[in-house]
Simulated scan of single mutants.
Amino acid sequence: MQLVVARIGRAHGIKGEVTVEVRTDEPELRLGPGAVLGTEPASAGPLTIATGRVHSGRLLLRFEGVHDRGGAEALRNILLIAEVDPEELPEDPDEFYDHQLMDLDVVLADGTEIGRITEITHLPSQDLFIVERPDGSEVMIPFVEEIVTEIDLEEQRAVIDPPPGLIDELIDELEETDLPEASDPSGKGER
Rank of each mutant, 00 (worst) to 15 (best):
F129T: 10
L166N: 04
E175V: 09
R191Y: 09
L101N: 12
K188V: 13
F129L: 15
I120L: 13
V66P: 04
D103T: 14
I8A: 00
G52W: 08
G52D: 09
L123G: 14
E40A: 03
I147R: 05
I49F: 01
I151D: 08
I171F: 03
S137G: 12
A72K: 00
P90Y: 06
I141V: 15
L75Q: 00
I14P: 02
A109H: 09
I114K: 04
E173D: 12
L101P: 11
T118M: 09
H12F: 03
E17Q: 06
T112K: 12
L80Y: 07
A82P: 07
L47W: 03
E145N: 11
A6K: 04
R10M: 07
A182P: 05
G9A: 04
I117F: 01
P124A: 11
G57A: 09
G34K: 01
G187Y: 07
R23D: 03
T112D: 11
T19W: 07
E91A: 12
G115W: 00
P33M: 08
R157T: 05
R30A: 11
L153I: 07
T118I: 12
P164H: 09
I167G: 02
A72R: 00
R30Y: 07
L29F: 11
E21L: 04
L75F: 00
P142M: 06
A82Y: 03
I160N: 09
E190A: 15
G189M: 10
R69Y: 00
L104C: 12
A44H: 09
E150V: 14
Q126V: 14
A72D: 00
R58G: 01
R69A: 07
Q156P: 02
L47F: 02
F63C: 07
I141Y: 02
L179M: 13
G9V: 02
G187V: 12
E119D: 13
I167R: 02
E88W: 03
